[in-house]
Design a protein around this nucleic acid. Structure first.
Lengths: 146, 146
DNA sequence: CTCAGTGCAAAGTCTTTGCACGATT
DNA sequence: AATCGTGCAAAGACTTTGCACTGAG
């Protein structure tokens, strides 16, 4: 992740926090930095493991609370790929994208396709809907697992 | 639901059961008939409520087990619209389709669009994936809620 | 000094499972 | 008769919450 993007999320978060009267704490800072410093789609458990590497005293509850905060502020997206856990993904400094998921090995590949997005909007309009967000996940077998 | 479609799921289920050495019981029959006799996307709880209307002795565990069976046999699809519950939807006697979900009132509209599906396959192929299934959900505001 | 945040453990949800009993093939 | 299915309650997995203490503003 680039320096510019790190400033990006730090600024956005600071603004969200001041707007909502939230305080900046050692735990929140650590969790947020760890989250944005990681790639991919982390479960709370995975993130907690990383965070505890730096500070063993942080509780899971705080990780849950902080990720809910990031999600509410729009800085992270909550995803559910069907394994029963909520996974979080950074939402700032990157384009919208969708997912290809290998049902055998769990590999997740991201992709984006403007044409599909355009067609989604068209379909929605036809049904009188105004789309705010969407999720599209393609499940199948990756090259190695076929 | 038409008579032909009811035969359809009954036959497919009978075949699946005999192939897997499964027995036909009062509870399974009731749950399956209730499920296919209902519209929409039912949670286990909702289905259980309906089933108990006909036979109060059926336990939730059996509903969970039966829906898992239907899901494994391909007669029902498990969906997760983000409310923390698994919802099931009939899969036989109908085309594949996707969903438009109103984030305000919860209305769910189904749609299908072959062009989008074709493009999804193309995208997957480009990444070396072979798509087995997918889910696409568009979240936004319906006509009434805008 | 005040109010939000944290840790901990308890409680909540939704779902699965072990076991003894009951029903189907 | 041999198995599979069921009900029940207990256990599991994940997440939220109440409460007393801590710490930021």
């Amino acid at each position: 992740m680039s320096h510019a993007q790190q400033q990006d999320h730090a600024q956005l978060l600071a603004r969200f926090m001041s707007e909502h009267g939230l305080k900046s704490t050692r735990q929140r800072t650590l969790i947020v930095e760890t989250f944005f410093g990681s790639e991919g789609h982390l479960s709370v458990e995975e993130l907690w493991d990383k965070v505890r590497g730096a500070d063993a005293r942080v509780s899971v509850a705080t990780v849950y609370r902080t990720m809910k905060l990031l999600s509410d502020s729009g800085l992270a997206h909550a995803r559910n790929f069907g394994d029963g856990q909520t996974r979080y993904e950074a939402a700032v400094g990157r384009h919208h994208h969708d997912h290809l998921i290998c049902t055998n090995c769990g590999t997740i590949v991201e992709f984006e396709n403007d044409k599909i997005e355009t067609m989604q909007d068209a379909v929605a309009r036809r049904h009188g809907f105004k789309v705010v967000s969407h999720k599209m996940e393609l499940y199948g077998l990756c090259k190695n697992c076929q």
